[in-house]
């Protein structure tokens, strides 16, 4: 009995404080939760809109699909008339120093890539960071949705399965191409399975 009393004497402040703080956190969370979720959806939508400018509606069609060992939601983008513009998903892979997360878009029939945007990367600024550069990203827009190949030099304007690497950021360029290659076949089979493409 004494020990219980001792225990309460010593720790009542801690218990009371934990309770109050818990309440405080719950209130803050309740107040801000919707806004935070909205922010995340907005950020994702903005990126998808950047890749598929004609699309107006984005709809999550597959929740937490597992592709290349990582989980991602798959989104369907369509225009006002209900025409499917394409699909978008998050591709993850190991980069130069850390994980890279890309949001990748393919067209409605899974024949061509519509490009990618960088969701998060911790790459070295001004080196690996350069996969965000427009000329590099432009090479993926319209490229055939199959195996891509990285080359050291070539015509960056020509759209085909050959991607010209960024000088000084070869590893990050390789990582980007690898993410594309690792994901596309599995994505196709998942979409086929769900009857979303032929």
């Amino acid at each position: 009995m004494r020990s219980v009393k001792h225990f309460i004497e010593q720790s009542w402040l801690l218990i009371a404080a934990a309770f109050c703080f818990g309440l405080l956190l719950a209130m803050t969370n309740a107040a801000l939760k919707d806004k935070i979720e909205q922010n995340q959806i907005d950020a994702l939508n903005n990126m998808m809109r950047g890749l598929m400018s004609e699309a107006t509606n984005f709809e999550k069609v597959i929740d937490q699909a597992e592709i290349a060992g990582y989980k991602t939601d798959i989104y369907k983008a369509s225009d006002n008339g209900g025409q499917i513009i394409g699909f978008a998903f998050v591709g993850t892979g190991a980069g130069f120093a850390d994980k890279i997360k890309l949001i990748i878009a393919v067209d409605g029939t899974c024949d061509k890539f519509l490009g990618f945007d960088v969701l998060s990367s911790n790459e070295t600024p001004l080196f690996g960071d350069r996969i965000k550069e427009d000329w590099f990203r432009a090479q993926f827009v319209g490229a055939p949705a199959g195996a891509l190949e990285l080359i050291k030099s070539g015509d960056t304007k020509k759209i085909d399965n050959k991607i010209v690497a960024i000088t000084g950021a070869t590893v990050s360029s390789q990582a980007t191409v690898k993410i594309f290659n690792d994901h596309i076949e599995e994505l196709k089979s998942i979409l086929k399975e769900k009857g979303l493409i032929d």
Binding site: A94, F96, A97, T124, V171, Q174, A175
Partner: peptide, 9 residues
Amino acid sequence: FMGFAGMIK
């Protein structure tokens, strides 16, 4: 230590 970066792919 930056020299180690890129060692792991």
